[in-house]
Design a protein around this nucleic acid. Sequence first.
DNA 1: CCGCATCCGGGGCGATACTG
DNA 2: CAGTATCGCCCCGGATGCGG
Lengths: 247, 247
Amino acid sequence: MRSYGQYCSVAKALDVIGDRWTLLIIRELLLRGACRYTDLRAGLPGIATNLLAQRLRELEQAGVLAREDAPPPIATTLFRLTARGEQLESVIDELGRWGVPLMVEPREGEEFRAHWLRFPVELFLLDSAPERPPVTLELRTGGEPVTVCTTPEGVRVCAEHVPQPDAVLSGTPQLVLGVLSGALELDAARARGLELEGDPGVLARLLPAARDVPAPLGGHIPVSGGGEAYARSAGDATAPGPYPAGR
Amino acid sequence: MRSYGQYCSVAKALDVIGDRWTLLIIRELLLRGACRYTDLRAGLPGIATNLLAQRLRELEQAGVLAREDAPPPIATTLFRLTARGEQLESVIDELGRWGVPLMVEPREGEEFRAHWLRFPVELFLLDSAPERPPVTLELRTGGEPVTVCTTPEGVRVCAEHVPQPDAVLSGTPQLVLGVLSGALELDAARARGLELEGDPGVLARLLPAARDVPAPLGGHIPVSGGGEAYARSAGDATAPGPYPAGR
DNA sequence: CCGCATCCGGGGCGATACTG
DNA sequence: CAGTATCGCCCCGGATGCGG
C-alpha cells in the first residue's frame, strides 16, 4: 500500500494493515489459527486469489505472519500469525464490537461462516455459574455448527464438534445472534423460527450478562440511513450505545 | 466502498470505515473535536480534496459524523463526530498502540503534526503524584507546541498554549517520543540533541509508568525488514511486546 | 488438489485546476 | 472557505492458466 507519509502511530499502523482484505485475513488467522492457503480462501469469500497471495507476501514481509511447512504427513504450507500479528487481536476485537449494531440488517446474499460468530458471542456471553459443571451449547446457523463451551477462563467458542451438547440452538444467524446478545427475547425468536433443543437452563446460565443491556433490535427496527437508527433506538443520541463500551 | 458481503461484525465495520483515509479523518475529529473542512485538510496532509469531501459525505450518511453550522459570529460549517462515531475511539486507540513500534524509523520527508502525539503520550505517561499541585510540560517537536497537563482524570494533552509551563522538552519527534515512552534514557536523548528546560522533576513525575517497560529502541536499532526487528529486539519472539498489551 | 502468476477491464485514488 | 471538475494511474476484482 502507498504510505500515508505521516509520522503518527495510527497512520503507520494503517500503512501496514490498512489495505483492503488485510484485516480480514488477520481475522481468519486469529479465529482459526494456522491456515492453509485454501482454508483462507474458504474463510474469505469474495477475495481474488492473486490478492490473497499478494497480501500474504506483504504481511510476511511486515513480520505480521510467517509461513511454515506442515508436519511430515501432509505436504503443504501453513500461514501463522507471529507474536506481533497476534497483538492485532485487540484491534479486531474493537472493530468487531463496533460492527455488531450493523448486523441487524441481514442483507440479501451475504456470505456467512459460523466461526465468525466468535467475536460477538465471546463479547456477550458470561458464565453466571462457573462453579457448576461445564456445559456446551451448539449453534446451528447454516454452515458448520460451532460449539460454545464454558471454561475456567470464560465462555469460549470452538469449531470442533462436541458429540452430546447440553443444548442446541438452530436458526438464522440474526436470530441466534439476537438471542445471544440479549436483544431478542427467546420467545420472540422462537416465534420467528428459532429452535431450542435440550436443556433451556444452559441459555439462562450464559445469557445474564446481556440482560442488563437495553434491547436495540427488539422487534423489526426499520434501519433507514445507517448507524443513526441504532443510536436513535437507544433513546438518547449522546449516551453510549447499549453494547459494552470500548476498553 | 464496495461491501465485503460477509455477515460478520468485523467485515461490516470495515464496510463503513475500511476505506482509505477514513480512519484518519476519524482520528482528526477525535483529537481536535469539531473541525472545519480546512482544519481537516491541514491535519490530513496528502489527502486529495475531492476524496475528503467524498469521505465526509459517506461518513455523514453512515451516521458517524454530522455537519453543523458554526455559531453566529463565524459563518462556516463544522464537522463533528456523532456518539456512534466517538465509539470508534477504542479502535483508533488500539491501532495507535499497535503502531507505536513502527515509529522507530523516522523516514525521510514524513509529515508531522504535534497533536498526533496525544495517542502515544496518553498511553505512556502516568501521574505518579496526583496529590501534588498539577504541572504542565510543553513539547516542541517542530510544528505547533503541545502541552501535557496533569488532571484529576489523568495525564492529558491539550493543544492550547500554556503561558508558563513547568518544563519544556524540545527536539525531534522520535527523540521526544523515545523519552516519553521510556525507551530512551533522558541522558542518551540529550546527547542526541534533545533539550530539557525548566524543572526536571516534572519528567520524573510523569515517566515512571514507562520505566517498567523494556527498552525496544535503546540506541540505534537497525530496522531491516519490518516489524521483525522490533520483535527480535524484545529478546523473545513469542512474548508480547514491550508496550502495554491490548485490553 | 494446492499455491500461486498472468492478463485484462473498471473504478478508486492522487494531483492539480478551477469555482460559487 | 468548501468544495467540484478533470484526468491519468494503479489498485482491485474476476477469470484463467500452470507447475509441483
